[in-house]
Computed example of a mutant assay.
Amino acid sequence: MKKILVVLTNTTRYRHTNEPTGLWLGEATEFVDIIHEAGYSVDYVSPKGGFVPIDPRSMKYVNKNIMESYEIGDFQQRALCKSLKPNEINPDDYVAIYYTGGHGVMWDFPNNVELQMIAKEIYNNNGFITSVCHGIAGLINIKDADGKYIIEGRNITGFTKSEEMLAGKMRFIPFLNQEITEKRGAIFQKRRAYREFVVQDGHIITGQNPFSAKAVAKMLISNLSH
């Protein structure tokens, strides 16, 4: 059975500040739990490989399942300590790619050409490109064979402008996901702040915020099961 590739950030801080950031923990663990329950395995990749920091703010929102997954040695080693480098990935091994969030991704996801090529190959092999929350930043610069943004004309979602304002990080971030996806021609959909919401348009599945990771996983599994 083919695998699902989970993309994580290497960014430790909001650039030019001492404010820490990184992976939003639950966006990885809650997604992966559903994937494992369905019988699929995952690999973890990051732009530079190796160490993946955790956004300390995400630890305030853990539950029993998130903590149990976080404490598993396999997750600590393969995801947080020894994530793979993009050049170690063979896109043919995967049926889907999943971009996790956390504010850190806004710096190292958008312009990583290697990850874009991996995502594009998975997509061209009839696989799925998926994301949650800030992870939509990984999709904003992917182009198809005709040079068109892959999200152009597509229904997508991600962390909204209102959610960003509520998070209190507007002065730190390099762009707003909602604004930049709309500039790319995407049809940005949203629901109430911090409520579970997922959108599918063809082989692109996106979730609005940290509370949407499980819904993205379930929708992906539903598609893979057909």
Results as ranks from 00 to 15, higher is better:
residue 66 I to W: 05
residue 68 E to Y: 13
residue 68 E to M: 15
residue 70 Y to Q: 14
residue 70 Y to K: 13
residue 70 Y to F: 13
residue 71 E to D: 07
residue 71 E to K: 13
residue 72 I to V: 10
residue 72 I to M: 04
residue 73 G to I: 08
residue 73 G to Q: 08
residue 74 D to N: 13
residue 75 F to W: 05
residue 75 F to Q: 05
residue 76 Q to G: 01
residue 77 Q to I: 13
residue 79 A to F: 06
residue 79 A to P: 01
residue 79 A to W: 05
residue 80 L to D: 03
residue 80 L to N: 04
residue 83 S to Q: 00
residue 83 S to L: 07
residue 83 S to H: 02
residue 84 L to V: 07
residue 84 L to S: 03
residue 84 L to D: 05
residue 84 L to P: 05
residue 87 N to I: 00
residue 88 E to N: 10
residue 89 I to A: 03
residue 90 N to G: 01
residue 91 P to Q: 00
residue 91 P to A: 06
residue 92 D to H: 02
residue 92 D to K: 04
residue 92 D to S: 02
residue 92 D to L: 04
residue 94 Y to Q: 14
residue 94 Y to K: 09
residue 94 Y to D: 05
residue 94 Y to E: 15
residue 95 V to Y: 01
residue 95 V to Q: 03
residue 95 V to P: 00
residue 96 A to R: 10
residue 97 I to V: 09
residue 98 Y to I: 03
residue 98 Y to M: 08
residue 98 Y to R: 12
residue 100 T to A: 04
residue 101 G to Q: 12
residue 101 G to T: 10
residue 102 G to T: 02
residue 103 H to L: 01
residue 105 V to A: 03
residue 106 M to N: 03
residue 109 F to T: 04
residue 110 P to G: 00
residue 110 P to V: 02
residue 110 P to A: 01
residue 111 N to R: 09
residue 111 N to A: 07
residue 112 N to L: 00
residue 112 N to T: 00
residue 113 V to Q: 04
residue 113 V to P: 00
residue 114 E to F: 00
residue 116 Q to I: 06
residue 119 A to D: 01
residue 120 K to D: 01
residue 121 E to G: 01
residue 123 Y to A: 10
residue 124 N to T: 02
residue 125 N to G: 00
residue 125 N to R: 01
residue 128 F to S: 08
residue 129 I to S: 02
residue 131 S to Y: 07
residue 132 V to Q: 06
residue 132 V to M: 05
residue 132 V to H: 02
residue 133 C to P: 15
residue 134 H to L: 06
residue 135 G to H: 06
residue 137 A to Y: 05
residue 137 A to L: 08
residue 138 G to Q: 05
residue 141 N to Y: 08
residue 142 I to N: 09
residue 143 K to H: 13
residue 144 D to N: 14
residue 144 D to M: 08
residue 145 A to M: 02
residue 146 D to G: 08
residue 147 G to Q: 06
residue 148 K to H: 09
residue 150 I to P: 01
residue 150 I to G: 00
residue 152 E to W: 10
residue 153 G to Y: 14
residue 154 R to T: 14
residue 154 R to K: 15
residue 154 R to H: 15
residue 157 T to F: 11
residue 158 G to W: 06
residue 158 G to A: 02
residue 159 F to P: 07
residue 159 F to V: 01
residue 160 T to K: 08
residue 161 K to F: 06
residue 161 K to P: 10
residue 162 S to T: 15
residue 162 S to K: 11
residue 164 E to S: 04
residue 164 E to V: 03
residue 167 A to H: 15
residue 167 A to G: 15
residue 172 F to E: 09
residue 172 F to W: 15
residue 173 I to G: 13
residue 173 I to C: 11
residue 173 I to D: 14
residue 174 P to Q: 05
residue 175 F to T: 10
residue 176 L to M: 03
residue 177 N to F: 02
residue 178 Q to T: 06
residue 181 T to E: 13
residue 181 T to L: 09
residue 183 K to W: 07
residue 185 G to Q: 12
residue 185 G to W: 11
residue 186 A to K: 12
residue 186 A to M: 07
residue 186 A to W: 04
residue 187 I to G: 14
residue 189 Q to W: 11
residue 189 Q to D: 11
residue 189 Q to S: 14
residue 189 Q to R: 14
residue 190 K to D: 11
residue 190 K to S: 12
residue 190 K to G: 12
residue 192 R to I: 01
